[in-house]
């Protein structure tokens, strides 16, 4: 592969990152709006947001992308490919994210809400000053997973001809025929970005938890109690011979 072709891949990576950031911002906005709407006091708000969430969780992101790009123009709107991709990813992952928001808010103990009520906070203040600050740190790990799913989802945009990483790889494959090398390289690129996202989000989680006065668990997996016999040659394994 020549340097020119590498350049093509890095250009693709840049578009992938842009696409990820744009759709993540859109998805986050939608997630909070829809997540809060589903907890609304008014049934119509709950109903409408519920329909939105179930619909976009139910459909396929790729089909949605096609629809926004190919079908919407015939109904009168023509979207640029990049915006069709961003909109499709934002709408899909926003629907998933709204479930995270809703779950985290509902996980805040009812006593907190009652205490805020007893202090005569307005509903808006209750949410903004008491509930959300406690709920947001809980949202970080699932949001991290969703962000990585979103990053992987950006590859779908290649079918619209958006020049992101997977599309760049296709061009390079056609130019060189070295499919193993090209796809190997971009898989590693995706993996590195996902790794950096995970690391960044872990930092964010720690800071978010510290801000509400909680000691972050160092590592959820090591803190977990492992049943004897489940792992390794530790105590209690079966058939492990003399001990």
């Amino acid at each position: 592969m020549t340097t020119g072709l590498y350049e093509l891949l890095f250009k693709g990576l840049w578009v992938t990152l842009q696409l990820t950031v744009f759709s993540a911002v859109l998805a986050a906005l939608i997630a909070f709006a829809a997540g809060l709407a589903r907890l609304s006091r008014f049934w119509i708000v709950r109903f409408v947001s519920g329909v939105y969430v179930e619909f976009f969780r139910g459909t396929s992101a790729l089909v949605l992308m096609f629809w926004l790009f190919f079908a919407l123009p015939l109904l009168g709107w023509q979207l640029a490919a990049l915006w069709a991709g961003t909109l499709a990813l934002g709408l899909s992952y926003g629907a998933y994210g709204s479930e995270v928001v809703r779950g985290a808010i509902r996980a805040v103990p009812a006593a907190q809400r009652e205490a805020a009520l007893a202090l005569s906070f307005t509903p808006w203040q209750r949410m903004w000053l008491v509930i959300l600050p406690q709920a947001v740190p809980e949202m970080v790990p699932p949001f991290c997973n969703l962000l990585i799913e979103l990053l992987k989802g950006t590859a779908l945009a290649s079918v619209l001809g958006i020049g992101e990483l997977a599309f760049g790889a296709q061009l390079v494959r056609l130019a060189t025929g070295q499919s193993a090398q090209v796809y190997g390289i971009i898989l590693v690129m995706y993996f590195v970005v996902a790794f950096l996202i995970t690391r960044g989000m872990r930092l964010l989680e720690r800071r978010a938890k510290a801000s509400v006065g909680r000691v972050p668990q160092r590592d959820r997996t090591t803190a977990k109690r492992v049943p004897p016999g489940a792992v390794g040659p530790g105590v209690g394994t079966i058939g492990g011979g003399a001990r």
């Binding site: 079966i238 058939g239 492990g240 011979g241 003399a242 001990r243």
Partner: peptide, 14 residues
């Protein structure tokens, strides 16, 4: 530390 014997034999799976 120490040993446990059952029926005169050191404790193992058998």
């Amino acid at each position: 530390d120490g040993r446990i014997l059952v029926d005169g034999q050191p404790l193992d799976a058998e």
